[in-house]
Amino acid sequence: MATKAVCVLKGDGPVQGIINFEQKESNGPVKVWGSIKGLTEGLHGFHVHEFGDNTAGCTSAGPHFNPLSRKHGGPKDEERHVGDLGNVTADKDGVADVSIEDSVISLSGDHCIIGRTLVVHEKADDLGKGGNEESTKTGNAGSRLACGVIGIAQ
């Protein structure tokens, strides 16, 4: 089992970053940390998408990683996509320092995120509470600013 993974985020604009993942036990939580720069100040949706395909930019990554066919939600919700990591918060300089621990994603097994795409979005994720159909699919997080395929790390 891989215990570490990394993702280099890039987009068409100024947004870029490096996100690290570490899972010490196969059924334990995954620590997610790193930094994203070039964002507007505020909240930005942060999700693992189904495919590791960036051939047409971030759009070819498909929908959120959702092997259990659930509705979109927040990272602490029972009803959520596996890939729903909530929001990252950018400061006035456009930098989001990421520090998350998640017990639904994994670096092995059915919820493995390796080979899938991590995406940072234009807007805040409403965590499935926006009151419309799009909220239950995407959290109304808007366009995909930057993305990268999650790969095994040393």
Rank of each mutant, 00 (worst) to 15 (best):
H121T: 15
H121D: 12
K123G: 09
H44A: 02
G83V: 13
T3V: 12
A56Y: 07
K123Y: 11
I36Q: 00
F65W: 13
H121M: 11
R116P: 04
N140L: 10
A124P: 12
R80C: 06
T59F: 08
D77S: 10
D91L: 06
G139I: 04
I150D: 00
G42S: 04
C112N: 06
I152M: 15
A56Q: 09
K24A: 11
L118T: 00
K137L: 14
S106R: 09
V15G: 05
S60V: 14
T138M: 03
H111K: 15
P63T: 12
G130R: 11
E122V: 05
G148K: 00
L118A: 03
V149K: 10
V88T: 02
H49Q: 10
H121F: 13
K10F: 03
C147A: 09
G142R: 07
K71N: 15
G151A: 12
V120N: 00
G34M: 00
E50A: 12
T89N: 15
C7L: 02
G11V: 05
K10Y: 09
E134A: 09
G57R: 07
E22I: 13
C147M: 08
C7A: 09
V119L: 04
V8L: 14
H121W: 11
A90K: 00
G52D: 05
E79M: 12
G151E: 15
T55G: 10
N54F: 08
H44M: 00
T40D: 08
L39C: 01
G74S: 13
S108E: 12
D93M: 10
K71L: 14
W33F: 08
H121L: 13
D125Q: 07
N27A: 14
K31N: 13
T40S: 11
A61E: 12
H44L: 01
G130Y: 06
K37N: 11
G13I: 03
S99L: 10
D77K: 04
A96Q: 03
I36E: 03
A56C: 08
E25F: 07
E134L: 04
K129V: 09
G83S: 11
F21E: 06
I100P: 00
I100C: 10
T89H: 14
R80W: 06
A153N: 12
T55S: 14
